[in-house]
Write a protein that binds this DNA or RNA. Structure first.
Length: 566
RNA sequence: AGGGGCGUCGUCAAGCGGUAAGACACAGGACUUUGGUUCCUGCAUUCGGAGGUUCGAAUCCUCCCGCCCCUGCCA
């Protein structure tokens, strides 16, 4: 991606980039641009984080700057090394590189404590010995001012001593907190003497038991930014109320610099959930198989589903950056996935719901090895051999005994093309006498149509995919649909009531062409006429057990026509 | 209710006083050995509402309405 020069030419630079560009032009920070992506390691990254990652790393790259990865690990009760590991893996998978700039807020604990000391020294912070409940009572309400704590006017010396002893572990959890001395009457509740430090005897995943006091977000984040030389601290809208506090801390301490916080609207997507709380509920409640369940909007989930990282980046570019609350249509994400896959995913044939077709005039025992291109529109992509024989499987829904007007696939007496193979004509239908279910379709083929064209120029209205019964490989296919059903006017208070009962369908009787025998986990291809599929990362075993996840279906005009007919 | 934000097509989103970009979705049509892809065409006389300023307003002013965020020793 190249530089601001390119950016100037495209209209509609988002408001954050416009601001960064202006800062660079005005020589602010000597033209330096430095951003950061600051996740708390308390969960897996999801597509909403991807928006932030693309924004922060994107700005870094576009303005010839840098972007750090920083773990905001100030609350050991919720954080763990598993999340630290997964976050790194996901950011890399998405396609971004923090080079040697991976940091942890916990690395700054010592310096942070020094800054706290500075605030106390200046009379701008004090140790409060009120209980949590009492502090809440003193805070006031949205319309009434708060009341000052009786401990608010302790001397510097006393505060310094108390804070030292808090750190030394002389007090039980919750006995005291360190608070900023700002304004208990501020209309912004965050400015009513916010808590800076609390006592918590919890083992920290990186600092172990070294600390029993932990700094709060508002104190930690701005100073971490400043210590890393961040120029633009980009975060989501709900932190807008925190900005005055962000600035207050940096203004009242000898911070190395003063980054600019800028807020943008977080991503919402239709038919899924993006809040960490709800995602945890899905996993811990057993609604999903894990954080990487292909139905999850997590990056590991999308990876397992088969979404190419580039398509996620494209999506993040297309949705734009703004300040208004918005909910992006899932169809746009799926469009980006299809657009990416369409360009390169090799085409192969697989039958999800097989029904047997016997070619009655096919020479006994003959096998015709047909050469089929991986990309019909691009011969340079190569080809593979697909065996054709007298016993085949086609898709059950590609045959109708009594077809409606607009159905132009196989039906009694009708001729269709089998892709890259022959024209076949349905002569007879065999049914189970008990259930009356169709068990087999008897067809004849035209030997003159090998490859799929009739020398006499006659046309067929449909081309079907197929596999040879004797050569095809059994496979499991997992079909996914949206996590939630479409939202209606009456939203349930519990979102799990809106979970889509059809979000997963497992098909165990599928057949795929033999060329897929040794395909590797995570490899992607298009099953012609069906969709894009990804060999499952976890369960697929090359040569042994074939398991495919449907990444996204193809656009299905026929389904639309059917729906209209209903 | 106090404070902080936001309201442009069904959904995102440009626009920054000169007469409503683009994308997705949707609807037609062409092409097609994937009812796929591709390609055409259509899709906001109007910018939450009402006034006002101006030759001219989505853009400026006033008032009103709606939605989101804030009363964790979470981030």
């Amino acid at each position: 991606m190249s530089e601001a020069g390119t950016l100037q030419e495209k209209p509609g630079l988002d408001f954050i980039r416009a601001r960064v560009k202006q800062d660079v032009e005005e020589g602010k920070n000597n033209g330096r641009v430095h951003t950061r992506f600051p996740p708390e390691p308390n969960g897996y990254l999801h597509i909403g984080h991807a928006k932030s990652i693309c924004l922060n790393f994107g700005i870094g790259a576009e303005f010839n700057g840098k972007c750090n990865l920083r773990f905001d690990d100030t609350n050991p009760a919720k954080e763990s090394p598993e999340f630290v590991r997964s976050i790194q893996e996901d950011v890399r998978w998405l396609g971004f590189d923090w080079e040697d700039r991976m940091f942890f807020a916990s690395d700054y604990f010592e310096k942070l404590a020094d800054f706290a000391g500075e605030l106390i020294q200046k009379g701008l912070a004090y140790v409060d010995s009120l209980s949590a409940d009492e502090i809440r009572e003193h805070r006031g309400t949205l319309t009434e001012p708060g009341r000052e704590s009786p401990f608010r006017n302790r001397t510097k010396e006393e505060n310094l001593d108390l804070f030292r002893r808090m750190r030394a572990g002389e007090f039980p959890d919750g006995a005291h907190v360190l608070r900023a001395k700002i304004d208990m009457a501020s209309p912004n509740l965050l400015m009513r003497d916010p808590t800076l430090y609390r006592i918590r005897r919890i083992h920290h995943h990186r600092t172990g038991d070294k600390w029993c006091i932990y700094p709060m977000y508002d104190f930690t984040h701005c100073l971490s930014d400043a210590m890393e030389g961040i120029t633009h601290s980009v975060c989501t809208l709900e932190f807008e109320n925190n900005r005055p506090l962000y600035d207050w801390v940096l203004d009242n301490v000898s911070a190395p610099c003063h980054p600019q916080q800028i807020e943008f609207a977080r991503l919402n997507l239709t038919r899924t959930v993006l809040s960490k709380r709800k995602l945890i509920r899905l996993v811990e409640g057993g609604f999903m198989s894990g954080w990487d369940d292909p139905r999850m909007p997590t990056l590991v989930g999308m990876r397992r589903r088969g979404y190419p990282p580039r398509s996620i980046r494209t999506f993040c570019e297309r949705i734009g950056i703004a300040k208004r609350d918005s909910t992006v249509d899932m169809a746009l994400l799926e469009h980006c996935v299809r657009e990416d896959l369409n360009a390169w995913a090799p085409r192969i044939m697989a039958v999800q719901d097989p029904i047997k077709v016997t070619i009655t005039n096919w020479p006994q025992g003959k096998v015709d090895n047909l050469e089929c291109p991986f990309m019909p529109n691009d011969p340079s992509a190569g080809s593979r051999i697909v065996p054709f024989s007298g016993e085949l499987f086609i898709e059950r829904e590609d045959f109708m005994e009594d077809p409606p007007k607009k159905f132009f696939r196989l039906a009694p007496g009708r001729e269709v093309r089998l892709r890259y193979a022959y024209f076949i004509r349905c002569e007879e239908v065999v049914k189970d006498p008990g259930t009356n279910e169709i068990t087999e379709i008897l067809c004849t083929y035209d030997p003159e149509t090998r490859g799929g064209d009739a020398p006499d120029g006659r046309k067929v209205k449909a081309t079907l995919h197929w596999v040879s019964a004797a050569h095809a490989l059994p496979a499991e296919v997992r079909l996914y649909d949206s996590l939630l059903t479409e939202s209606g006017p009456d939203e349930p208070e519990d979102f799990t009531e809106r979970l889509n009962p059809d979000s997963l369908k497992v098909l165990t009787n599928c057949r795929v062409e033999p060329s897929l025998k040794d395909c590797q986990p995570e490899s992607l291809c298009q099953f012609e006429r069906l969709g894009y599929y990804c060999a499952d990362r976890m369960d697929h075993e090359p040569g042994a057990r074939l398991v495919f996840n449907r990444t996204v279906s193809l656009r299905d005009t026929w389904a639309k026509i059917q729906k209209k007919g209903e």
